[in-house]
Structure formats: structure tokens, C-alpha cells
């Protein structure tokens, strides 16, 4: 085997540096290690910021802030959870802080005034919704009130449980469940209106 082939084989079999190792090296001042972490997780962080805010410019700013915050806090990561989980929670909390600064608390939680039967329109229309394409769903999510959108994105898109959503939003598990249900019905209404089915 030639030297070039050996190097290539070594590179292919060389184990990837773990996020924990990169985090530890970053905490010791290794900027290249932190840059590697950044490139590994940039898209995930941005995607989450975008889904929660529905605003690309805001999502870009928040993404930048999250990584600056990450750099300042990287020394506190001990590997008790997966790095992606830790960073994900940091991102969610950062977006929620942004909402709290820019909205009143009631906007974030969304008033409980609507009842499910009030949200559901067109129940006389028995035609079932066809498969929802990604674009239609993303558009509908962007039109949800911030409170509904937060709960829906965190639960149905990102997979958080209601207990954790409640903790993050400063509310109860019951409120999180109620908000989620109304968000789903609101989305149904928005999607049907888009499709002219109401």
C-alpha cells in the first residue's frame, strides 16, 4: 500500500472526535475545536430558531447569539446528557427569552379564551384533509400566534414532553396540553383556508 493510500485509509477509519471532546477543548481555549462544533450544529440551531420565530432575520440573529452564549458556557457541559440535547435546550430557552423581551407574557401563553369548538370551523365539511405538504404546513405554522406556535413546534415538531414544555414556558403541563390541542385545531383551520376547503 502506498503512503497516500495509507493516509486515506487512516483518515477513513480514524474515529470522529466527539462533541464532548470538542467541548472540553473549546473550554480550554481551542478556537478550532469550537469552530468544528459550530459547523456541526449550525443548521440544527438555525432550523429551530426559524421554526419558533418564523422570521429568517430574527432566526439568524438568535443563532449567532446562541453560539456566543454557547462559547461562554461551554465549560459547564459535563457530558451528563448528549451535547445535542444540551445545545437544543439552550437554543429553545434563548428563543423563549427573546419572546419574553419582545412580547407580553399573555401573548406568549396565548389567552385561553378560544374553545376548541370555536376554533373548528367547517365541521360541516366532511371532506378529510389530504396529505399536508411541507410548504403548506410551514406556512400555517408561521401564521400561528406565538404561544400556539411555541408549544406546537416544541411538542409535535421537536418532540418535547409537556412537563418540560411547561417548565420552559413557565406554565403547567395542563396548559401546555391545552395550548397544543388548540394549536393543532388552529393549524387545521389555516391549512383548510389555504386549500379553499372551508
Amino acid at each position: 500500500m502506498s503512503a497516500a493510500e495509507t493516509n486515506q485509509a487512516t483518515a477513513e477509519t480514524k474515529p470522529k472526535v466527539t462533541d464532548l471532546e470538542l467541548a472540553q477543548r473549546s473550554a480550554e481555549g481551542d478556537r478550532e475545536a469550537f469552530e468544528e462544533l459550530y459547523h456541526r450544529h449550525f443548521r440544527r440551531v438555525y432550523a429551530l430558531c426559524l421554526r419558533m420565530t418564523s422570521n429568517p432575520s430574527t432566526a439568524e440573529d438568535l443563532t449567532q447569539e446562541v453560539f456566543i452564549h454557547l462559547f461562554n458556557k461551554i465549560g459547564s457541559f459535563r457530558g451528563d446528557s448528549a451535547f445535542t440535547t444540551w445545545l437544543h435546550r439552550m437554543t429553545v430557552n434563548h428563543v423563549l427569552m427573546y419572546f419574553r423581551k419582545s412580547s407580553t407574557r399573555s401573548e406568549l401563553l396565548t389567552a385561553e379564551g378560544e374553545t376548541p369548538i370555536q376554533i373548528v370551523r367547517g365541521t360541516e365539511n366532511q371532506a378529510k384533509m389530504p396529505v399536508v405538504d411541507r410548504i403548506a404546513l410551514e406556512k400555517a405554522i408561521s401564521e400561528l400566534p406565538p404561544g400556539y406556535r411555541s408549544v406546537f413546534v416544541l411538542h409535535d415538531v421537536e418532540g418535547y414532553e409537556h412537563e418540560e414544555i411547561g417548565r420552559m414556558l413557565g406554565t403547567s403541563t395542563g396548559t401546555s396540553k391545552s395550548q397544543l390541542h388548540k394549536a393543532r385545531l388552529k393549524l387545521r383551520d389555516l391549512i383548510r383556508r389555504q386549500a379553499g376547503q372551508n
Binding site: R43, R44, K128, V132, E138, F152, E158, G159, L185, R188
Partner: peptide
Amino acid sequence: DVETIIVSASSLREEEGISFP
């Protein structure tokens, strides 16, 4: 319809379709 939305939502976790800066 709610079931359809729930199923569709879980597929959004992937980053497909997003225009990244």
C-alpha cells in the same frame, strides 16, 4: 385532520426545505 397534522409535523424535524443563511 389532526392525525394528519401530527404525522406531518414530525417530519419537519429534518432540515429539508429550509433556506439557510
